[in-house]
Amino acid sequence: MIELLSEMFSYTFLVRAVIVGFLVSICASLLGVSLVLKRYSMIGDGLSHVGFGSLAIASALNLAPLAVSIPVVVGAAFILLRISENSKIKGDASIALMSTSAMAIGVLVISMTSGLTMDVCNYMFGSILAMSESDVYLSVVLSIIVLILFIVFYNKIFAVTFDENFSRATGVQAGVYNMLIALLTAVTIVLGMRMMGALLISSLIIFPSLTSMRLCKTFKSVIICSSFVSVICFFIGIIISYLYAAPTGATIVGVNIIVFCAFSIAATIKRRRILPQRRIL
């Protein structure tokens, strides 16, 4: 095992991937709890498609991919929130509208310029080779900022997630915190997209929180458990993908599926054990 790890970490690209993946997994799992509970799970998916579109445009124009995608996806996150709050197109429909449009624009731009190259394939399905050194620095800095902001605003995020109307009525700027959640999500998605791929990144957001909600009963324990689940799944996934040369993103999602099933079974067993006792009482 130790031999395997030291062999893996002798490759610079793998070290980069592990550092960025570790941080992005934590960020995604923390934000995921709030997004899933607010019924915003699809926002992650929608934003990753927007991210794909903007990466395609950036590579067509020979611009730095992260520097272009982050502002575009953040902008899209703001628009999505605004639309789902105000207009008559409901949240899920507006997300579907936006994600398919962005995907279509991305595909059009690609077909007009380079064609379906390896690069484009990487954007869709992810690649651990995609990280350059400057990408790593940017990713580390941004994901640490996301983590700090999440911890600082933890209590506010809890209150706004649990009951937005109560927060508004008692004078809390719920809109600002919704924006904050969207902003952090957007940044996390762009950072994780290169490795996980546009089509799979939203699983990092949804799976760990759903998994830990099977067993955990308090918000704090759900948050802590889901960040552990996320990081552990990520490591197991990346080791398996190294050993069997499997695609990284898909392997990580595969591990997440198995852990989710395990937690679900554990929850069912736990409930079965408690129920007969209650009947006796």
Binding site: F158, A159, T161, F162, T170, V172, K217, T218
Partner: peptide
């Protein structure tokens, strides 16, 4: 009570304490 709260994982203490947010 709204639909979100029906499956929200939170302890009673966490919910009550969130009233002090303002």
């Amino acid at each position: 009570t709204n639909a979100v709260q029906k499956d929200f994982p939170a302890s009673v203490y966490e919910v009550v304490l969130s009233g002090r947010l303002n």
